[in-house]
Amino acid sequence: MDDTARETSRGRLRRTTALLSLAYLVFVIVWRAVVWFADEWWPATVLVFAPGWWLLLPAAVLVPAAALVCRRSLGPLLLAVVLAGAATHFSFPVSALSRSPDGFRVRLLTCNMHYTENLDPVALNQLLDETRPDVVLLQEWKHPNPSGALVLPNGDWHTHQTEQVRSETLESLADKFVLASRFPIRRTAVLGRYSMSPQGAVIRYELETAAGPVTVFNVHLATPRDGLQAVLRAGGDGPAKVQAGSDVRREQSAGVAQAAGTARPVLIAGDLNTPPQSARFRREWNGYTDAFSSAGWGWGHTFFTRNAAVRVDHILTGPGWRCDRCWVGPDVGSPHRPVLADLVWSPSDGR
């Protein structure tokens, strides 16, 4: 091949790379705009529950190509990668950039145990022994006695669990919640027993701590599973089911937020079945800080299937709390992963 032919071929490759890079940037911008309306518009809801990692796959090919033949395309590609990270809610620990305030500290762990069907008690107990949380909140626990599969680290523990009863109207079992706390439990109130009910499955605890009473909510909201599966089957009722599920979770979230009221200090944790990209997540939990978004690193996926992973388990903190660190724990035999957070109560810090 002579020099002219080579230059022609190289020019064609350069133009193709530039066009594909711009097309990728436009695609990511459109994707980001669409998922902004998750839980308001059913296609956007489906997208936030779909695998997000593939959104970055084109960059794995285009970035090396641009570096070789079209370096001016690296700028649009970098912007596309940043927007793709935002669209899939990749988190940076921004709280690590500032000094941690003085105050009352607590480590909280939450996990949906999925009725402990495949519980790995060794992995769960090892996690508890290594991380030594102060408060443990479990949803969908099945064992009649938590100590039968839950070995708490040394210390004086206070525990509470709810009964698992069946609803005739919802044709489902009530969530069985477990609380294990190093702090005395002053009060408990069951605000809802069934995750698919208008109230959701919600328990409010009041713990006696060195900082005074702390209100903690253990939460499990409605699953989007039926609607998403109907869409995948191309069922005609799929879109309606997806939107109905979003509406139920909005009502449930609003109810929990109202129950929390102006309580301070307040913590809300559990399986909200809502990704952080959701428009309704932003609206209903506007007065709270998502621990992983402020102090976690990466995507923080907490629920895994064979084809997808999504972050639906959260730790939310009310005003006055600072999260120093938040991370996702290992597999303990549930499709949900534990979420842990190191929290500091420092109301004078102005957060």
Rank of each mutant, 00 (worst) to 15 (best):
A66K: 00
V69E: 06
V69K: 11
C70Q: 12
S73D: 10
P76F: 09
L77V: 11
L79A: 15
A80Y: 03
A80V: 06
V81Y: 02
V82W: 10
L83K: 04
G85C: 14
A86L: 15
A86P: 01
A87P: 04
A87L: 07
T88N: 15
H89N: 15
S91N: 11
F92E: 03
F92Y: 12
F92N: 01
A96P: 01
S98E: 13
R99V: 13
G103V: 11
F104T: 10
V106H: 02
R107W: 01
L108Q: 01
L109Y: 03
H114A: 11
T116I: 04
L119I: 14
P121T: 07
L124R: 01
L128M: 10
P133V: 05
V136I: 13
V136A: 01
L137N: 00
Q139I: 04
K142P: 00
P146G: 06
S147L: 13
G148N: 14
G148Q: 12
G148K: 10
A149E: 09
A149W: 08
L150W: 01
L150Q: 01
L150D: 00
L150I: 04
V151G: 03
V151D: 09
V151E: 03
L152M: 05
N154H: 12
G155K: 02
D156P: 03
W157S: 04
W157G: 09
W157A: 08
W157I: 08
H158Q: 10
H158S: 07
Q161E: 14
Q164T: 12
R166F: 13
R166I: 08
S167C: 11
E168Y: 09
T169R: 14
